[in-house]
């Protein structure tokens, strides 16, 4: 009897804290989004706020924008991360472990830098009067500040995508690098014997091996960019806004009337990313039963 409940006792502190703080918050948010809001004197339950939300073009514009930005961010981060780690792996030379370690630290730098910092770096680099535009101007490639395309605070979300691609690519690389390390160098030699070049080695051997981890970590990046607040808050335009920013703006618009609507946005956001999360988990499970599992 006693040993049987041991696991539950052990997970209790963590699970309890998360149940109260995390799940509790979600449930309270859900209840309020349904219109039960004692603090504002509302006691009925209804789907009015969801109806209101789903019929507003603001919401749909935000949703589409959020999807597009999250998709492009995770794709570019995924491709970039895969490219970097495969390059590093293929070009890795034996020996000099200490030096390799220093390099690895360096390439982890974008991971260490907080998102806000990275977003501001993008502002300084890519605004019309940014550093890149200055460099191009001094090279004589552009003559006017307006010749430089509007990349920051544009409604396409280019800057947000840049930020995430840059920031999350090392994350993807970090996720798939351990998988790569398990591939023996001799495999490449062996494949060479059978006439495979680098490209076909990559396509035939590396890619299938990396796929599960790559897909699941890209999904995580997708979910993260879908629901993160700080970067789009700093870089976004006034319209349309990404969903987390829309929620925040509704929440702080001042009136109590808009709060349940903001919380309804949150609930929808949570549902979407949960589905994505489950999908990522399933994918990593199905593709690699005995894999340690990417995160």
């Amino acid at each position: 009897m006693w040993p049987n409940i041991k696991p539950y006792i052990y997970v209790l502190p963590t699970a309890g804290v998360l149940l109260i703080l995390f799940v509790g918050g979600l449930i309270e948010g859900l209840i309020q989004s349904l219109g039960y809001f004692p603090a504002a004197g509302q006691y009925g339950f209804s789907l009015d706020y969801y109806r209101q939300l789903l019929s507003s073009s603001d919401f749909w514009d935000s949703l589409i924008l959020t999807f597009r930005i999250a998709l492009l961010s995770s794709l570019s981060a995924g491709v970039l991360g895969m490219f970097v780690s495969v390059c590093l792996f293929m070009l890795k030379r034996p020996g000099s472990g200490r030096k390799n370690q220093i390099w690895q630290r360096f390439f982890q730098l974008p991971l260490i830098v907080p998102h806000l910092v990275w977003a501001y770096l993008m502002v300084l680099l890519f605004t019309q009067s940014g550093w890149l535009s200055r460099i191009l101007a001094s090279l004589g490639w552009i003559h006017h500040i307006n010749d430089f395309p509007v990349l920051v605070n544009d409604s396409f979300g280019g800057d947000i995508i840049f930020t995430y691609a840059w920031k999350e690519a090392p994350f993807i690389a970090l996720m798939i690098y351990p998988v790569l390390l398990r591939i023996h160098g001799s495999w490449f030699e062996a494949s060479r014997v059978f006439g495979a070049n680098r490209w076909s080695f990559f396509r035939e051997i590396l890619l299938p091996l990396l796929m599960p981890t790559w897909i699941s970590s890209s999904f995580i990046v997708f979910a993260f960019t879908f629901s993160a607040f700080e970067v789009p808050f700093l870089l976004g335009v006034t319209y349309p806004r990404m969903l987390p920013v829309l929620s925040y703006n509704l929440y702080t618009s001042g009136g109590l009337e808009a709060r349940p609507e903001a919380l309804a946005v949150n609930v929808i956001l949570a549902v979407i990313v949960s589905i994505l999360g489950v999908a990522a988990y399933r994918l990593s499970q199905r593709w690699s039963m005995d894999e340690q599992g990417g995160w």
Partner: peptide
């Protein structure tokens, strides 16, 4: 176990502000 794992991993992808906004009054 899967339920506990799900509970533990969920906050990685569901941002904390959703919970905090929900229980702000509390």
């Amino acid at each position: 176990k899967w339920l506990i794992e799900g509970l533990i991993y969920a906050p990685i992808i569901i941002p904390a502000f959703i919970s905090v906004m929900g229980m702000y009054i509390s």
